[in-house]
Each structure stands twice: as C-alpha cells, then as structure tokens.
Design a protein around this nucleic acid. Structure first.
Lengths: 200, 200, 200, 200
DNA sequence: CATGAATGAGCATTCATTCAT
DNA sequence: AATGAATGAATGCTCATTCAT
C-alpha cells in the first residue's frame, strides 16, 4: 500500500503546485515547467502523472472548490447564533485583497468554464453550494425570529452569492474603487436590508 | 490627410477583428495569426500597426467599454419615466446568453486586469460608470417620488452592478443553474426591494 | 539450472514479441514500450535482458532467418521427386501476400543491413542458403535427367533467389501490379525455361 | 513571377536535401534538422515549405523515380542497336555499389511503401516503367531478328526487373557475396538465355 | 504601406534509461 | 528477477518577430 499512497501524495503535491502556478501566472501563462518547478520535480514527472494536462487543471479546480467550501463552512460554523454566523458568512466570501491566492485561483478557473464542461460544472457546484450555505443561514435566522426575509431564502441566497462574486472579481482584478472593506460594508448593508436585521 | 484617415480606419478594423478573436478564442488562445485572419490582412500588418500587441488589446478593451456603455445608455434613455428606464437598465446589464459576444469579450478582458494597470483602469471605469448610471436612475426616481431608497443611491448602485457582474459571469461561463431569465428576475426582485417600487 | 532455462525462455519470448512489433510497426517505428507490451512485461524488463536493444534486433533477425529456412526446407522436403520439390521451392519463397508476417519482418531487417554488419551477414547467410537450396534441387534434378540446366546451377540458383527477393519486395510493399499469383507464375515460367522442364 | 520561381527553387533544394538525408541516415533516422542542415536553412524553414513532412518525402520519392528513369532512359538511348541498348539497360539497373545514393534512396523509400499508398503507387510506377523499358527493347530486338524470346516480352521484362531489384537490394545492403560485377554477370547471363542472343 | 519569406526562441511531448525496491 | 517511478535528452512544432521587396 506504500506505492498508491506515494502516488496520491505526489498527485496532491502536483495539484498544489499547479494551483500556485495558476494563481501566480494565470491560466494563459501556465507552463508545465512552472508547475514542475513549483513542485520541485522534472517536467517529465508532471506528464507522467498527468498525461493530459487538462486533467490536472480540473483536479486543481476540484481541490480548490472543496477546500474553499470546507474552510468557509468552518468559519461559518465557528461562532454561535444566526447573526454571528451570517456575519462570518459575509466576511468569508470575499477575497482578502488582490493577492488572495484562493480567490485568484478560483477566478482564473472560472475563466475557462465557458470552454470546458468540467470546469463549468465545478463552478456551478461552487455557486450552488455557496447559495445553499446562505439559504440555510437565512432560514435558520428566520426560524429563530432574528431575520425577517424580504424574499424567498433561495432567491436572497443567490443574490448574495452573485454580489459576492461580482465584488470578488473587482477586488482580485485590482479595481481601485473596490477594496475588501468597501465590499464587505456594501454586502453587509445589503444583507441587513434583506434580512431586516440591523445587528448584522 | 488621406493617410492618417486610412491609418485610423485600419486600426479600427484591427480592433474589431481582435475583439472578435478574443471573444472567440479567449485571451489565453489569442494568436496574432487569428487577428490577422479575422481582419483579412497579414500577420505582419498587425505588428505594423501595433508593434506592442498589448496596446491593441488595451484598445480593444477601451473600445468595448465605450461601445457597451453607449449602447446601454441608449437603451436606458429610450423609454420614458424612472420605472421604465430602471427596467431597461436591469435588462441591459446582463448577457443575452453564454454566447453574448460583448459580455464574453468584457469578461475575458477583466481576466487580465489583475496583471495590467491599464486594463484594471478600464474595468474600474466601466464599473464606476455603470454604477453612475444606476445612481442617476435611483436619484431621479426618488426625486420623482416613485422610488423609496433603502440606502444611499451610490451604495445601492454599486450593489446592483456587482450583482449584475456576478450573474453575468455565471451566464457567460455556462453555469447551467443561472440563465438570463433567472438572473433578470432575481436582479429585478432585488431592485424592487431596495427601491420600494413594486412596479419594476 | 532452472534460472538459465527461464532466462532463455524469457529471451525467446522477447524475441518473438520484438519480431511481431517490427513486422507490425516497422523498424522505424519500433519502441521498447511496444516490445514490452507485446511480451506482456515492463519496459524495464526488456532492457534488463537486452541492455543493448540492437542485440535483440539481431536475435530477432537470426531467429527469423533460421525459422524461415527450416520451414522452407520442411516444405521442400515434403514431396518426393525433383519436379515436385522444385515446385514446392518456388511456392515457398514468396510472401502469401502483403500481410505475410515473416516476409515483412525479413524485409524490415534487410533494410537495416546497410548500416549493420551483423544484419548484413544474416541477410547474406539467408541468401546463400536459399541459393544452396535451389542449387541442390537443380543438381539433383539434372542428375536424375529431369532438368537440363541452361547454366551452372549456382548461377541459376542465385538468379532464382534474386527474382524471389525482387517479387517479394513488391508484394510486401503493396505493389498492386504484383500479387503472389502473378509472381509465382512468372517465377515458375522462368524456372521452366532454365531447367528445360515443362512439367514445373 | 520571381516569387513562385524562388518558391519552386527552394522546394527543389529541400527535396534534394531531404533525398541526401534519407540516403545518408535512412528513413528511420530522418530528422527535420538534418534536412535543414543539408539544405543550409533553419528547421523552421523546412516546416514552412512542408508543414506535413510526409509530403516532402513523397516529393523526394517522386523526384527520385523520375530522375532515375530519365537517366536510365538516357543511358539506354545512347548506343545504337538492340544488343548495345540491352547491354546498356542491364548495366543501368543495378547500383554502382553499396554507396550508390540513388539506389539507396529508392530502397529506403520502397521500405515505407507498405505503410503509404502514395509511396506504393510511386514504387509500382517505377516497376511498371522499368518493365516497359525492357519490354520495348525485347520487342524491338525480336522484330529485328536479333532476339528470340523465350516467353512473352512483358513476362520476361518483369522478371528482369524483379531480378534487378533483388540483386540491387543485396548490393545496397552490403551482402558481401553479391557485388555489382557478379550481379551484372548473372543478370546478363539470364538475359542472354531468354533472348537467345549470345552477343549480350 | 503591406506582404510573404524565413528564423529562432520556447513549448509540449516522446522515449530510452536509471534506480530504488 | 522484475517493476514502476522518475528523469533528461532529443524532437516536432507553434508562434511572434524580422526583413527584403
């Protein structure tokens, strides 16, 4: 069982390395030798594990989506109570800044979704699961009587994610008029309005 | 005076051709040969007019932003009255579908903004001017007594644009759960809520 | 004593596998991987038994020559009498068609003889022994009074083999104007003439 | 008209260079950079003129066949009378030795005919036209009363070409027992027999 | 002004080969 | 004895770029 484990470990290392390379140089500038250098192996090794480079990129996307969601879930579950959790959700959906590696990576990968069904599916999955996160929070808050929802929770949830994605795009892309602080404030104001909860 | 005019005309044709090439093949797959073919000239000619290819791409971005904004302004100004105009605004900010060439082009170009100050500036300009569009509509509507704004118009405006961008991203990227109809409906519902105007 | 035997068996299997690979893909397209796959072993194993790949190819050539000659001798010895045996000889020297694996292999290996003394020697050996086959048949037939040789038996024999080789080349190489039937007929007509034996 | 001429000249130079490279290194060892070096141009230039390398090899084959046939025809037509011409034919169909560039090239190219219809057609064309050469000589000689044909001229002609090809193969491939002198003698003896002409 | 010819840098990719196990 | 992991050399190929015309 040593071999398969090593195989998996090496594949994982390559996925990490490729993720860094994509976040750094962008999908357009992705080179096998960059991935190899980042992973500390030869270019041949990358091809050895991923004869089809696209498969590696899909693996990176999968990994990024899962890790991002898990981490976000973790940060949301940390505090107690609907209000604190919603605040955690609002805080955890935006890039920390233009250099946020995770968001850079995800946006790069979203950019190829229009030419790849696999990437489109991953992006759609991320969207749906983030919406589900918000939807749950909204419904729990409403059930607890803290939120008064201005519209069906699923609609509000999708709008929140769309707004996050929009602001996230501008933050990562260095829009000087949209920094994280502003975006969080505007997003929070919106959430406050649609939940009728001034404490957010 | 004939030369400069021809020069300009040729440059314009190259900008159009490059725009089509980017929308078609994406920034990552952009080749001088493709631009040349799309413009019906030789690859050398492209380099002759744009020794630095980046300049051509910036020109494409500039052109796309200006045309898009002008067209959107036109569509907003067409109807009369704040409500109709707001409806026109909500309808004109989302791609018609995954194949919408203008939005495809703009999203491709947003993708390079994080590596280019020029593109970031253009993207920021687009964001600001779209927000201004909404801001004006909101203020006029409020002044007319049709809208009751739930927050400062500039805040609401930016949120609307961010939401548009988020949904636009998913539409262009083939998220199967986000089609134009759904996005327009959700965006409109949001606008209805923040303007307090059920007629939207 | 088990080891050496296994060694030999494995080497034999590799020779067979390499022979099939060469007949299939040609010398130009020969890959260690293909030989290994054909033999059902790893590429490393091939190198283990034949650190110098050329040695394997020489072994293939040797094997092919010996087997081919043995089989041809067998087919010639089967019938009785000079005439029947000569007919068997004429029938056994031409490929059955463009897909005749043995002849394909031999011609591929002849093609490398100009760059390798070992292969040239094997090819020369094959030529000489085929000529000897014919020479014997001719002399026995002459002694029996059935053949009237038009020239020294060694000369006639070499001409027969050369003609065989020429026709064989065209058959294997898919010359549409030279099929086995035609070649056998022409070769036989020639043999009839030089032996003065109308019964061939 | 200067451009097309240069284009043609350059293509011709590449064909010559590729022919030399194939004769030197063999089809199996054919490298683009060798062709380029032989032609004194860059590797990119070879691809520029022949994006599909196979097309270049086919052109080489075509060229080799035509030149070889033209030269052979020339050498046959030089002397007067059926006997002298037949002697010229017999002398012009065999390689001068193992290093005969033309024959080396032709045999290399015959070796790929089994995997390429184009090359098979060229090889078949060469065979048919060489046979026609002999057939004409035989018929003219018979008509003149110098030859007494032992079989239909087309049959004799094909046998002559097959024998030539067989001996040619062995000469080029360094069969030490088959040198040009021996082959010419044996081939001539055969011709003498089938034409009944002792003067050959 | 514009082109096609020609190049070379940079890339993915194939493949024989090495090595630890 | 035999393998799979891993490498690096070698090659084809793409593409931006230069240049003479």
């Amino acid at each position: 069982m040593a071999r398969p484990k090593n195989q998996e470990a090496r594949r994982g290392a390559l996925i990490d390395a490729a993720g860094r390379a994509i976040a750094d140089r962008g999908m357009a500038g992705l080179r096998i030798k960059d991935i190899a250098a980042e992973a500390g192996v030869s270019a041949g090794s990358v091809l050895y594990y991923y004869p089809e480079l696209d498969d590696l990129v899909v693996a990176v996307h999968q990994d990024a989506v899962e890790n991002y969601l898990a981490e976000r879930q973790r940060r949301i579950d940390e505090p107690d109570g609907p209000v604190a959790r919603m605040r955690a959700a609002l805080a955890s959906g935006l890039p920390s800044g233009p250099d946020d590696a995770v968001h850079r990576l995800l946006f790069e990968l979203h950019g190829v979704a229009d030419r790849s069904a696999a990437h489109a599916a991953l992006m759609a999955s991320l969207f749906a699961r983030e919406a589900a996160l918000y939807s749950t929070l909204l419904q729990v808050g409403a059930a607890a009587g803290v939120f008064t929802l201005a519209a069906p929770p699923n609609d509000l949830a999708r709008n929140l994610v769309a707004m996050e994605d929009g602001y996230g795009l501008h933050i990562v892309a260095h829009n000087p008029a949209v920094d994280r602080g502003t975006a969080v404030a505007l997003l929070t104001a919106h959430a406050r309005a649609v939940t009728g909860c001034p404490d957010l």
